[in-house]
C-alpha cells in the first residue's frame, strides 16, 4: 500500500533583510494512512514551518519552498496549482493551530465557520451542513451544542475553542490532520481533555495525524512514531517506544535529560544543553548540533552527518550523528549512565 504522505528533501527558506533563513533544510519522511506521527523540537527548529509547507501555507514573501516533493495521496502538493491546493486544504488535509484565540474568525458564528467548509468542499446545502455541524460539535464534546453553535468565538473558553477547531478539522473527514502545538496555549487539565479527544477521534476515524510539539510528554502517549527536529532538519526518527527507551542522538539525550519528570522523586540535578541553537542564516559547517554537543569529535565540525539507520537498534531507527553510525563512538553508550564517557571524551580532547 502506498504511503499517504511522502515528503522528500523539503526545503523552505525565508528571505529577510538580514539574509536567507534556512527554516527547513532537507526534510524527508513518510506517513502511512492512519498513522500518528509526532514532530518534536524547540522553537525555531522548523517543525511548524514544515507543517505549513505541507499545506503550502508559507507566506510569500518572505517565505518560499525552494526544493522537495510532497506526495500526498499520490499527488505532488508542491506542483499543484492554487485551485487544486485549495481543494485539498481543509478537505483531505486539515490543520489545527496553536492559538485557539486567533485562529477562529471573531465576526462569524461557530456554525457559520464550520458549515462554510462543508458547503465548499462537500457541496452540502445549508440544512444538511447545519445538521452535520451539530453532529461534529457534539462529537468534540461541546455541551448543549444545539444552542451554542450559533454563538461567536469570544463566547467560548480557550479549551472549547480548541474543540471547535478540532470539529472544523474533522468536518470533511480528512485523511490527514496536522496539529501544530494544539495544547500549548491551554492549561494542563484542559490539555488532558483535548489530547484524550484527539486520540479517541483519530482511532475512531482512522485519520492519520502529525502532532507537532515541544513537549516530549505530550507525544509519548499520543503517537506511534516520533521525529526529532533541530535547526531545520530531522535529527532522529524512531518508534515512540524505541525513541524513549533507546535514543541515539545527543540532542535527544539532552532534551530528555533537561526536563524534570513528574514521577521522579529524586532531586537529581538537571543536565541542560549548554549554549543556544545555531543561527539559521549562517549555519555552521558539519553537524548543526556540534557546537552544543558534549560528545563531539573533529569529524563533527568538518562534515555534516546524514540521517542513517542506527546499529544495535530497531530497524527503522535513524539518527543524524557521526557517533551513533556504524562504528561510531556512541553506539554502545547509554545516555542515562554516560558520566564515564564524558570523562573519557574530556581526557581524549
Amino acid at each position: 500500500m502506498p504511503d499517504l504522505l511522502d515528503v522528500k528533501g523539503l526545503e523552505t527558506r525565508f528571505f529577510t533583510r538580514d539574509g536567507e533563513v534556512h527554516a527547513v533544510d532537507g526534510v524527508s519522511f513518510r506517513l502511512a494512512a492512519g498513522e500518528t506521527l509526532g514532530i518534536v523540537g524547540e522553537s525555531g527548529c522548523g517543525k511548524s514551518v514544515t507543517a505549513l509547507s505541507l499545506m503550502r501555507l508559507i507566506p510569500y514573501p518572505p517565505g518560499k519552498i525552494t526544493a522537495g516533493t510532497v506526495m500526498f495521496d499520490g499527488q505532488d502538493v508542491l506542483k499543484m496549482d492554487d485551485d487544486e491546493v485549495r481543494a485539498i486544504r481543509g478537505n483531505n488535509m486539515a490543520m489545527i493551530f496553536q492559538d485557539p484565540m486567533t485562529s477562529l474568525n471573531p465576526v462569524l458564528t461557530i456554525s457559520r465557520q464550520i458549515t462554510e467548509a462543508l458547503e465548499l468542499h462537500l457541496k452540502m446545502n445549508r440544512t444538511d451542513a447545519r445538521k452535520r455541524c451539530l453532529e461534529l460539535l457534539e462529537m468534540v464534546g461541546i455541551p448543549s451544542a444545539k444552542v451554542r453553535m450559533d454563538d461567536y468565538p469570544h463566547q467560548f473558553s480557550g479549551g472549547m475553542r480548541q474543540r471547535v477547531m478540532i470539529a472544523m478539522a474533522l468536518s470533511c473527514n480528512p485523511k490527514l490532520i496536522l496539529a501544530d502545538e494544539p495544547t500549548t496555549a491551554l492549561d494542563v487539565t484542559i490539555q488532558a481533555q483535548i489530547l484524550e479527544l484527539l486520540k479517541k477521534l483519530a482511532k475512531e476515524f482512522g485519520t492519520a495525524f502529525i502532532l507537532i510539539t515541544h513537549d516530549l510528554g505530550v507525544v509519548a502517549g499520543m503517537t506511534q512514531r516520533i521525529h526529532v527536529m533541530y535547526a531545520g532538519r530531522i535529527v532522529e526518527k524512531a518508534d515512540t517506544g524505541e525513541l524513549f527507551a533507546n535514543p541515539k542522538m545527543p540532542y535527544t539525550w539532552g532534551l530528555l535529560r533537561s526536563i524534570p519528570r513528574l514521577d521522579e522523586s529524586r532531586r537529581a540535578k538537571l543536565r541542560p544543553i549548554e549554549g543556544l541553537p545555531p543561527d539559521l542564516i549562517n549555519l555552521p559547517v558539519g553537524c548543526c548540533f556540534a557546537a552544543r554537543c558534549q560528545y563531539k569529535r573533529d569529524v563533527c565540525t568538518e562534515k555534516e552527518p546524514e540521517l542513517k539507520v542506527v546499529p544495535k537498534a530497531k530497524p527503522d531507527h535513524e539518527a543524524r550523528c557521526w557517533g551513533t553510525q556504524e562504528g561510531g563512538w556512541l553506539v554502545d553508550v547509554d545516555y542515562r549512565t554516560d558520566t564515564t564517557v564524558m570523562a573519557a571524551v574530556g581526557a581524549a580532547s
Binding site: 487539565t189 484524550e196 509519548a220
Partner: peptide
C-alpha cells in the same frame, strides 16, 4: 489528584498504562 494525573510523562511505557482523571468543563 486531577492536576497530577493530567501531566503527560515523557515515557510511553508509563504513559500508556496511566489512568487519567479527566476533569469536565472549564474553570
Amino acid at each position: 489528584q486531577a492536576l497530577l494525573s493530567a501531566v503527560p510523562i515523557p515515557d510511553p511505557a508509563v504513559e500508556t498504562k496511566r489512568q487519567r482523571i479527566i476533569l469536565t468543563g472549564d474553570v
